[in-house]
């Protein structure tokens, strides 16, 4: 948890999973909320899960192009964090282009988020629009490799 304090990175090894067990969207959300909870980023699973589903109810965050970004802003988030999960088989996030999501980024931020983090999220979002970046992430097999690939993202 102390790692978050350096204020520049939104990613950490303990919230990266290069092979999610989940086979469905619901399972993936649960698995990734657990990751965030175990890492101490989220203090209340029920509340945060609800926030995530409330957002999904507006419209699915399966963006197409093989990735999904479920996200939630809540008081129960201690520090901003983006959990990263890979699903080799792909998960059905009801994307408009019908693709399955191989990359899931679960964004947890607190209501009083500072601009720096929002800028990093914006930078991540931009990066994700590029096929080669997505492919390079999926080619990683360890958390450390993923972290290194993501470290190029700065505000």
């Amino acid at each position: 948890m102390a790692e978050v304090a350096n204020n520049t990175s939104l990613f950490a090894a303990d919230t990266i999973c290069t092979d999610l067990r989940a086979k469905t969207k619901d399972e993936a959300i649960k698995e990734m909320v657990d990751l965030l909870y175990d890492a101490g980023v989220v203090t209340d699973k029920a509340v945060f899960t609800q926030v995530i589903y409330d957002r999904e109810a507006l419209s699915s965050t399966g963006m197409g192009m093989g990735f999904a970004i479920p996200h939630g802003r809540s008081e129960v988030v201690t520090g901003p964090r983006v959990a990263v999960g890979f699903s080799r088989d792909g998960l059905d996030f009801a994307a408009p282009d019908g693709t399955l999501a191989n990359l899931v980024f679960m964004i947890a931020i607190s209501p009083a988020e500072n601009n720096l983090h929002l800028k990093i999220l914006a930078a991540l979002s931009r990066k994700l629009m590029h096929q080669d970046f997505r492919d390079s992430l999926l080619a990683c097999s360890t958390r450390e490799e993923v972290l290194e690939k993501l470290s190029v993202i700065t505000a």
């Binding site: 963006m63 996200h71 929002l118 931009r126 994700l128 629009m129």
Partner: peptide, 17 residues
């Protein structure tokens, strides 16, 4: 977009590309 943390910038990048 309503939450303004991701879609906004994805659309920006997609349009620029």
């Amino acid at each position: 977009c309503p939450t303004g943390i991701a879609h906004t910038f994805m659309a920006e990048e997609a349009l620029k590309t």
